[in-house]
Write a protein that binds this DNA or RNA. Structure first.
Lengths: 215, 215
DNA sequence: ATGGTCTTCTTGTGATCACAAATTCGGGCG
DNA sequence: CGCCCGAATTTGTGATCACAAGAAGACCAT
């Protein structure tokens, strides 16, 4: 087949394909409604249909992609109700994660969050939505990792994944000029050890994107 | 994860296998640590390795099964921390679902919940853990369906699935003699339209199993 | 042009196979 | 009796194929 140099023999084929597609979806570089075929994905990653099928089905199982009755796979076009629901889920889970991370958040972590925020500002300046989304997710994940709650973090990531394709559209409308105010509010609350303030900041940050959807 | 439950237009092989294994896991008739093989599952359901593999991988993606580094699949043996985390997730999500269902809960729904509760009592009398778990899940799902929040419900079901194999062990220790008090409390709160009471009742019901784990 | 029908191409499904890695089992040694 | 090493077996992975169903396009009639 396609003779492609394989520098990494360790990760299985389906893992490479899965991870490639997953980050692509989560970072929002696929438009909603875009369709994917087994042979197309296989050709792109230099594998046969088998690993391609497994990757796609897995992403469908995680809600990152949708499958029509005939088995065709495409990125989802979410209804406003679905988006609202997913945002509510983000609020629920991420507020809890932040709350659990708070007592473990030391200065090194806060500094790292500020560094990520700087990268975020750069992405905003460049008007680069993919970099923006990636930095935004990294900001949240970095904080939540401190919560030591892997099942909750996995849940949150699943929600991010489902919102991925729409996220770009959402942030595309947002002509942002500076780092989100709620990120700064989160950092202040972390420094002060202010749990109610942190919870409010996270909830506000998570649901802010939704508000402009309705506007 | 998002089990887009359509009636049944496509009894595809992998769907039959998936559903069979899924209900078996969620209802707790598989012990933790039990291993599953592709050829074994295939033989049991009369299909080849391909649909068996897809089903197992899907269940692994949903957290219902775990996969070792060598690709062996088995039911998970959850640590106490993991169980506690999953219970916290149940509390978070299900309290929200109940809260959203409350304004839509009419008398017909409450009567149905009471009917399910009667079946639950019967399962308790028979000392039948699988029937107990099934009725318990049905009680919760029936209420949450009224919330009109499919993404949240899917999330809750995913958590149930992950807890499935341990659930039996948990409820096995519980020498229960009567219908859970918190189910009755939930019904009272529903009748009274008492949202704080409902939230408390759901949270208590969800986390009660955990408490005896530590005892 | 427009609508419908037929053909053609595309696509997903499930079975089978070769292969490699891991597990298991047996025998022999300390 | 316990431990370790090697062979036999089990098991997952990925490729390929035949097949059916669906989508797309061509073609003709109106």
């Amino acid at each position: 087949m396609l003779t492609q140099t394989r520098p990494d023999p360790s990760p299985s084929a389906h893992d490479r394909v899965y991870r490639g597609l997953r980050t692509r979806i989560m970072h929002g570089d696929m438009a909603p409604g875009q369709s994917l075929t087994l042979r197309g994905v296989g050709r792109e990653f230099g594998v046969s249909m088998t690993p391609a099928r497994e990757s796609l089905r897995r992403l469908v199982a995680e809600g990152a992609l949708t499958m029509s009755a005939s088995g065709r796979v495409s990125t989802p076009e979410l209804s406003n109700e679905r988006i609202e629901e997913l945002a509510a889920l983000r609020a629920l889970i991420e507020v809890e994660l932040a709350s659990r991370a708070l007592p473990r958040a030391h200065m090194a972590l806060i500094e790292r969050l500020q560094t990520i925020n700087a990268g975020l500002a750069e992405a905003i300046a460049r008007q680069d939505p993919v970099a923006y989304i990636r930095a935004n997710l990294e900001f949240h994940r970095t904080l939540y990792l401190r919560a030591q709650a892997p099942a909750m973090l996995a849940m949150a990531e699943t929600v991010w994944l489902q919102l991925g394709p729409t996220m770009r559209m959402l942030y595309g409308r947002l002509r942002r000029k500076e780092v989100p105010q709620f990120h700064r509010m989160m950092i202040s609350a972390l420094k002060a050890g202010d749990e109610p303030g942190l919870r409010l900041a996270v909830r506000s940050d998570v649901t802010q994107g939704l508000k402009m959807l309705q506007g």
